[in-house]
């Protein structure tokens, strides 16, 4: 049985002007024109701060392509929300540095090129409950 294509997550980075407007608008337009299923969120940072359960559902739902910002930031935003991404199941496309054309093409392709930075920290090393010191 073939694997379903990766799910798609688009971040609109609403609360800052660090992602070029023309890039994020063009990426969203391309997704809308393609007719594919996708998740569009106003701001991943806000969701992370809220520990929005949608992040955990996305992180656990298998391969995912994310149009947002730097892979290192996205990796730890999910982690901080208690929803760590699987390093071999996530591809982050950086709208701060790539063109809309590059991002659109990569998002809609079915193959996934995992690119989260991998370091000393293991996904199992999740923070534990807050201590009395905090």
């Amino acid at each position: 049985m073939s694997q379903p294509p990766p799910s798609i997550l688009y971040c609109h980075c609403k609360y800052a002007q660090v992602v070029p407007k023309e890039v994020k608008d063009a990426v969203l337009r391309r997704l809308c024109e393609s007719g594919v299923a996708f998740e569009a969120v106003a701001d991943l940072c806000e969701m992370s701060a809220r520990r929005d359960p949608a992040l955990a559902r996305l992180a656990q739902a298998g391969p995912v392509k994310i149009a947002a910002c730097f892979p290192r930031a996205v990796k730890w935003l999910f982690h901080q929300a208690g929803a760590p991404l699987s390093p071999d199941q996530a591809e982050v496309l950086n709208m701060r540095t790539l063109t809309a054309e590059e991002i659109g093409t990569s998002l809609l392709a079915v193959d996934l090129h995992a690119n989260l930075p991998v370091g000393k920290f293991a996904p199992s090393d999740q923070p534990t409950a807050t201590s009395a010191l905090a």
């Binding site: 990766p6 969203l28 594919v36 299923a37 996708f38 998740e39 569009a40 106003a42 806000e46 929005d52």
Partner: peptide, 20 residues
């Protein structure tokens, strides 16, 4: 999105996050 909401556009071709 400009009002701060997240939107799921569903279709049969790809998975989206399940409901909670």
């Amino acid at each position: 999105l400009e009002k701060g909401y997240a939107v799921t556009r569903s279709a049969a071709d790809r998975p989206v996050a399940p409901a909670d």
